[in-house]
Design a protein around this nucleic acid. Sequence first.
DNA 1: ACGCGGATGGCCT
DNA 2: GGCCATCCGCGTA
Length: 183
Amino acid sequence: MSRELLGTVMVSRVGGVLTAGRVVETEAYLGESDPGCHAVAGRTKRTWHLFDAAGAAYIYFTYGMHWCTCAVTEREGWGSAVLIRALEPLAGIPVMYRRRGPAATHDRLLASGPARLSVALGLDGALDGAPITRGALVFRAGTPVPDADVAITGRIGFSAKNPARDWPLRWVLRDNPWTSRGA
DNA sequence: ACGCGGATGGCCT
DNA sequence: GGCCATCCGCGTA
């Protein structure tokens, strides 16, 4: 699913305002058997919607200040999801600047990171568990991405002792300026 | 162009 | 008490 979401267009309508971006970077989280997945702790209040059926949003709070947005990908109770890590801004760019504040000094800083794009699209706990097939947050088909343009790497942000640190579960568009690490 | 540390709070041990 | 699926600003070069 991480591969399929590359190139799709993530569209939000929050506060009556439409913003959208092309997905250029994703990460997979593989349920309770994945030491890097929030599902390892079981279904708690925080991770409740991670265990929903495919088609729900899982939007979680981390580091005391950031929201990050995932698409749940498997059956009810499975706990698997795809974290959206970066977007190429397509629509509502002035709104994204307003939401992101003074730190966004360039288009490339609007949505190049999971917390950044969540702010840019107005996504937070209010949409945790919302459907991603209709409503305030949806994914629409975009131009298909050929395999030659896709790179697979380890996931970002893991501590050194996490055994899943180097699992190849990050999908990113090659040489794309909108990703979370420049390329 | 890098690297580092502080912010900030919920959740697990 | 410690750990985060992060981001930002400041330091050195």
